[in-house]
Amino acid sequence: MILLFYIAGAVAVISTVAVILQTNIVHALIYLILSLLAVAVCFYVLGAPFAAVLEAIVYAGAIMVLFLFVIMMLNMGQHSIDQERSWMGPKVWIVPSILASVLLAQLLTVITQYDHELALTTVDVMEVSALLFGPYVLAVELASLLLLAGLVAAYHLAKK
């Protein structure tokens, strides 16, 4: 089980790196979707099936579709790929990657030194819902208000 977690994690990391390195924006998006799905698998393995499925439905299934939708409208051709490629010089990526590798080294030392057990308790839908509508009901209501505002705004813009 824990092996699955590490495989999924590796897939997530590699595909996220691929998102950054890809010059073709559609391919980059496909990698991003892959990364999100890998994160969903991580959630599942860690005992949060509900979060995993929501990750797949909401992020991979809805938000990324909208990204792709926008890209379709933009008509990215070869020129955007060339532009991306020209921007992706060593000057640009060397500093962030050094910083990121420092962070990675830190993370690895933390993981190797603090050998803690992974608590694999499954949190099912019932518990998540009970929490959402129990202690966190205010946050849920606020979020829904925000979404309602967004809905009204979208309706208004569409009317014009």
Binding site: I30, I33, L37, P49, F50, A52, V53, L54, A56, I57, A60, G61, A62, M64, V65, L68, D124, V125
Partner: peptide, 16 residues
Amino acid sequence: NIGVLFVLAMASLGAY
């Protein structure tokens, strides 16, 4: 035990 949600997730991936 997330069967219904799984189907929905797969359906949403089908759009790709």
